[in-house]
C-alpha cells in the first residue's frame, strides 16, 4: 500500500437555468396573482383540468385560449394523509393534514394542506381556501395558505368517486 496521503478536492458544479413556465402555466400563474383559480376545458369531452395546461393529456388536443374556466376556491376532499415529519414552507403545526381537493367544477384534484381536526377529517368533507393577505399575493399557488372545513353537509360519494 502506498503511504502517499489521499488528497480530496471539491469541484462544485452549478447549472443555471432561465426557466420558462410555458404559455398555459403562465396564464394560470398570472391569474392566481390576481386571486383567480384558472382551469382549462377540454374541447373534446368538456372535462376541466386544473391548473390550466397546454393540451389535454387524454385526447392530445391543444387547449384553445377560450377554454379557460375560472373556478371557485371551494371544493371537496377526495383523499387525505396525516403528516408527522416537518417540511419547508408549510404554515401549519405538526402533525398536519395534506389533502387532495376537488374544486367545484374541476375534474382534476389539487394537492394542498388542511387546517382541520385530525380525528374528523374525512373524504367528502367540504372545504374552502384561506388566502394570504392580498398585498402578499405573487404568481404562486402558495397564495392559498391552506384549506379549512366549511360548515356544510359532506359531498355525496358519487360526486367525487371518479376523482379518487
Amino acid at each position: 500500500m502506498s503511504e502517499d496521503p489521499i488528497e480530496v478536492f471539491l469541484q462544485p458544479i452549478q447549472l443555471d437555468y432561465d426557466y420558462t413556465a410555458g404559455v398555459s402555466a403562465s396564464r394560470f400563474l398570472r391569474a392566481i396573482e390576481q386571486g383567480k383559480l384558472l382551469g382549462q376545458r377540454c374541447p373534446v369531452d368538456g372535462r376541466v383540468y386544473f391548473p390550466s395546461r397546454g393540451s389535454c393529456p387524454q385526447h392530445a388536443v391543444p387547449f384553445a385560449d377560450d377554454g379557460a374556466v375560472e373556478l371557485p376556491d371551494r371544493g371537496t376532499i377526495v383523499t387525505y394523509s396525516i403528516v408527522r415529519v416537518p417540511s419547508e414552507n408549510i404554515p401549519l403545526e405538526l402533525p398536519y393534514i395534506t389533502v387532495q381537493v376537488l374544486l367545484d367544477g374541476a375534474d382534476t384534484v389539487l394537492m394542498h394542506v388542511l387546517d382541520g381536526d385530525l380525528d374528523t377529517v374525512r373524504m367528502g368533507l367540504r372545504v374552502e381556501a384561506v388566502w394570504k393577505p392580498k398585498e402578499e399575493w405573487t404568481t404562486s399557488l402558495a397564495n392559498i395558505l391552506y384549506f379549512r372545513p366549511l360548515d356544510e353537509p359532506d359531498a355525496d360519494y358519487d360526486s367525487y368517486k371518479e376523482h379518487i
Binding site: 420558462t20 413556465a21 410555458g22 404559455v23 398555459s24 402555466a25 403562465s26 397546454g54 393540451s55 391543444p62
Partner: peptide, 12 residues
C-alpha cells in the same frame, strides 16, 4: 423560444 415550454413546442 421565449414563451412556450418543451411540451408546448412538441404539441403543434
Amino acid at each position: 423560444e421565449t414563451d412556450r415550454n418543451e411540451v408546448e413546442i412538441l404539441i403543434p
